[in-house]
Amino acid sequence: MRRRLALLLGVLLFAGLAGLAAADQRFTVVKIDLRKERLELFLRDDAGVPFKRFDRLDAWLKERGRQLGFAMNAGMYHEDFSPVGLLVRGGREESPLNLADGAGNFFLKPNGVFLVSDAGPRVVESSEYPALAKGVRLATQSGPLLLRRGVVHPAFIPHSDSRKIRNGVGVIGHTAIFVISDVPVNFHEFALYFRDVLHCRDALYLDGTVSALHSPSLHRSDFVRELGPILGVASP
């Protein structure tokens, strides 16, 4: 109950702080204070089968006396649902950092890593990660970076007609800020929302088209497509 209440309060706090900027209803925001809540990464069950969906993950957790209070897709993945880049769960690296060049959003450099350590959450450029890897208990790599030290990704086009439902994560102090657009937006609009409304200096794009949110407090559990890695908060 405490965790579900904290998540709801995070949403209400956002509504109060953002004021009229939130009234356009283009985005849903969930703030997770990692001093109070434990964020986890989920991918496969005990038999090695990918969860793929929020309801399957929730059912698996309930069998263990836990409940999924928040979840969001955690980055890009291959056809077998394995991550394209870095994945660290429980302090163990399960998929290595990917610094290769290639086609698609993941490889639109600079890309980045969302990580959680004892020092709190961070979004960093991917090549910076190895120097920070010690003590990281959770990390997922995706791309492109939306913001790096307050600067919008140089490849973003302000009036681009490439509009999709998108989701991403930013950080302020010990708080991870998860955002999903409720209408199609372009990269530039999405980045500006993190910077100018939420006041994040660093933010990472997680995905588009497959973007989904699970939040019982918001009476919402999306299903668009089957998912790879999932970020979530579960009680107890």
Rank of each mutant, 00 (worst) to 15 (best):
S162E: 15
A139E: 13
A131M: 05
I177N: 07
G170A: 12
E125H: 02
K134A: 08
F156C: 09
K134Q: 04
R137S: 13
P121V: 00
P130F: 01
H159R: 15
E125A: 13
S160F: 05
S117R: 01
S117M: 06
V151K: 15
E125M: 02
H159V: 15
I172Q: 15
R163T: 03
H153F: 05
Y129F: 15
S117E: 02
P158R: 10
E128P: 03
G135N: 02
P158A: 06
R148W: 05
I180H: 12
L146G: 14
I165F: 13
P130W: 00
P158W: 03
G170V: 05
V123D: 05
L138P: 15
V151P: 06
V179G: 03
R166V: 02
S117K: 02
L138S: 10
G150W: 04
S126A: 15
V151N: 09
F156W: 13
V179W: 12
G173Q: 13
L145V: 14
G173P: 14
P130A: 03
S142N: 08
V136T: 08
V116E: 05
S127M: 06
D161E: 10
V169S: 01
P130C: 04
S181D: 05
G170R: 07
S160H: 08
P121D: 09
V123S: 10
V123T: 07
G170Q: 01
L132D: 08
E128R: 08
D182L: 12
L145T: 14
A119I: 00
I165G: 09
S126M: 03
S127C: 04
R137A: 11
R122V: 09
D182Y: 00
G120Q: 00
E125P: 05
G143S: 10
V124A: 14
K164P: 00
V136E: 04
G168A: 14
R149V: 02
F178C: 11
V152H: 05
V152L: 14
G168H: 10
A131Q: 13
P154R: 09
L145K: 14
V179S: 10
R149E: 15
V152Q: 05
A155Q: 12
G143C: 04
S127E: 12
G135I: 00
R122Y: 01
A139K: 11
